[in-house]
Design a protein around this nucleic acid. Sequence first.
DNA 1: TGGCTAATCCCTA
DNA 2: TAGGGATTAGCCA
Length: 804
Amino acid sequence: MNFGGFIDDSSGTNEGLGGARIVADIPYNTTTMPTGVFSQPRLVSSSIPKNMFNSPGLSLALQQPNIDNQGDETRLAENFEGSIGRRSREEEHESRSGSDNMDGGSGDDHDPATAAGDKPPRKKRYHRHTPQQIQELEALFKECPHPDEKQRLELSKRLCLETRQVKFWFQNRRTQMKTQLERHENSLLRQENDKLRAENMSIRDAMRNPICTNCGGPAIIGDLSLEEQHLRIENARLKDELDRVCALAGKFLGRPITGPPLPNSSLELGVGTNCTFGTTMATTTTLPLGHDALPTMVVPSNRPATTLDRSMFLELVLAAMDELVKMAQTDEPLWIKNIEGGREMLNHDEYLRTFTPCIGLKPNGFVTEASRETGVVIINSLALVETLMDSNRWAEMFHCMIARTSTTDVISNGMGGTRNGALQLMNAELQILSPLVPVREVSFLRFCKQHAEGVWAVVDVSIDSIKESTTFVTCRRLPSGCVVQDMPNGYSKVIWVEHAEYDESQVHQLYRPLLSSGMGFGAQRWVATLQRQCECLAILMSSTVPTRDHTAITPSGRRSMLKLAQRMTDNFCAGVCASTVHKWNKLNAGNVDEDVRVMTRKSIDDPGEPPGIVLSAATSVWLPVSPQRLFDFLRDERLRSEWDILSNGGPMQEMAHIAKGQDHGNCVSLLRASAMNANQSSMLILQETCIDAAGSLVVYAPVDIPAMHVVMNGGDSAYVALLPSGFAIVPDGPGSHGPISNGHVNGNTGGGSSRVGGSLLTVAFQILVNSLPTAKLTVESVETVNNLISCTVQKIKAALQCES
DNA sequence: TGGCTAATCCCTA
DNA sequence: TAGGGATTAGCCA
């Protein structure tokens, strides 16, 4: 029995510890033994002499303690015994494991002379798992931070560790992760704090010497000084904080706590000047700030927001927030259920009665689109708010909808380390995957507010009315956004409202019903995308990733492959919508179909693409088949030969499959043509498919086998050159009766006897027409890609029997 | 001295 | 009873 290694002379410092720690704290010199409660259990039996701890007979005596002691003493004695039992097992293990970082197997402790105290007592020996053990533990942790008992048992056998040790290791690793995360968050908060402090300083500076932005003279802000105005804002913030603290304290104390009454608790702002606008305006949060209300109140767009701008922005977003919350929470008569489609329609008369237009009247020729959707999403309110307030994360979450976005000015980062009160100025290009619908460029304020514990709202509102725009505005966003409420188990309920006015003349007839139904840019699409993306994230983060691939892809390989697929899909979208992400040049070539848009660009120095001249061709057509049927047909690798020239006339075979959602349609897969010719023997097809309530996508690209091999082993996917092609499918919209002007007139022949709604199919190809970036584009290349698109559409129509 | 790591105790679901 | 939080001790830079 090896025991000597656990004798510790640090007695008296660990009162309150139980179990093995007591054993470790047994004083070597009995004269130093403390007189407290712990001195008793150390003498588990009156038959054991006090100096037994120095004797070689120690372990035997302790294995059979006298448990005559009662109460605490008995319990501690049991702990005492138990701990010794545990130690003994560990000692056995230590010698069994053969770890070279432990000297437990030296045999010294069996030496009576050693144990009797001829040498000074040794401290507990330092022991660490071997690098190899840690490596294996880390590997499993990456896969699954919560292994079950079976997994732990298996690992413990493999690593020659006790299951307890494996369990502790995982527990500690999780704690460590949490600590690291907290530390990281702390540093972010500290940074934010510094930033706020700096901002505060600059505001104080500005307040000392306010200058009118129009005439350059000293500014007097209405009846209220700037300082007073800021004090009022600060008061509102403090009151808000007080309310939350009271609510929290009330929870703990079990009775409601109220703060001191405040003389003026509502956030009232008086904004006006004796110089810029001529009149003083006392405003409330519902003050109209549109063109009509404030004809001269415009902020030049080419300078950062001044303090005065900020006040105007704050007014606008408070009104917008008010409107959003009402729009989200009010049902009839503001929203009327559409009996046919079950969707809600905004009652415009009621809307105009309820709200004062906060961004002014609708411009001539613009039409209104309003939609509302409610959904349960697997994300909590805080995470969703963080995603929305970070333009990069926002763009990533809705990557098929947002071509480009940026935050141009952060007016407020929020209060008390949260996003509550965060206000920023943003630009975005919103897209529908069709060349027939122009990208919507919008410039808007985004404001975030916490309404209650676990209830947040984020509102967007266009600022075209108060900020001079250098470009012609084709779309204005009225208060739009979401109200999100936490639900149990990390889910949240999201109510999304999307309200816009846009120039319909820019939109092809084919897509007008879709847009007006709200399925294009509306709430349904935002919620459907959010649900799909969050489900995907949840699946990827969970330990049990459903795979049915026939090749073993490592977890890092899976990540690399998904990253590559995302780049592919993003590039596909950029090619369809001609967004400014890539600098596309539109072509007006002679022999190209009217509705096929052809664009070209040079690819230089991008390892993710082959160098040369890239040609993109895209078109959209109406098909009398349901979106689901069209999607199932296009994503089926066995039916690939019906439309894809890369299939060489035969079916394709799925080599690897990564699920991204419960629906089998959401996945990334690797395909191989069964009938390969010599030229394509080193080529595979990477394919990403996704589907939700708003539409679906099938995007694919030929990829090099060696390059994919690297990716599947976790290598960097940035060097895999690819050019994506594929399809975007959306329903044709309620009330749509097929094509009106694009020439693809079809009878109701496809896919069944009764019309269940047709589809709008966008087909797009990106191909390399010359590997020299300096080469000139030839007419033949353009005609080739045009033919490719036309043939593909014809083949799809033929396969789905919707040829007229 | 603070961070890391293996281990322990105590509490809770 | 398993897991998480809090805590400890030994080691190291």
